[in-house]
């Protein structure tokens, strides 16, 4: 093989590899991107029905309910403009509590957001950035601590 042909082969190989990686990335992105919506967007019908997405907001005080002995829990997420009710069956994270910002991951069915995962971060001062952003324009009706 001449050096020139060898170089062409090498360049071709690299291009092929990069192309394959890019194709893989786009395909994987396409399937696995999760969009975030706030309760107002859910109320306005922007969020898709029957498709997985993430919703975030503050857990409304006094909204956490569960039937005694049941693993299912319901709570209301708010961005101080609109609310969305979330149902979750399973163990809640340690730092889940009323008045705290959380993100739920799941699907919307008949106006009820059925979550398969609820995230609350370990720092009590922490607020998910998406939630912080969507709350920027709304004024909280009460002092959150």
């Amino acid at each position: 093989m001449t050096p020139r042909r060898k170089r062409m082969l090498a360049v071709g190989g690299v291009l092929l590899g990069v192309g394959a990686a890019a194709a893989l990335a786009f395909k994987a992105f396409d399937k696995n991107l999760l969009y975030f919506y706030d309760p107002s967007q859910v109320a306005a019908g922007v969020a898709p029905v029957g498709k997985t997405f993430r919703v975030g907001g503050m857990v409304t005080k006094g909204s956490v309910q569960r039937a005694p002995g049941s693993l299912e829990v319901r709570f209301v997420l708010t961005d101080y403009a609109h609310t969305v009710t979330v149902s979750y069956t399973g163990l809640l994270p340690d730092l889940f509590r009323e008045g705290q910002g959380v993100i739920a991951h799941g699907q919307l069915h008949d106006g009820l957001f059925v979550a398969d995962e609820v995230l609350a971060k370990h720092d009590e001062k922490y607020m998910p950035p998406e939630v912080a952003k969507s709350l920027k324009h709304a004024t909280p009706p009460e002092d959150r601590t």
């Binding site: 994987a28 992105f29 991107l33 975030f36 998406e130």
Partner: peptide, 8 residues
Amino acid sequence: KISVGPPY
């Protein structure tokens, strides 16, 4: 606002 999760 999107996130790329573990499946990706």
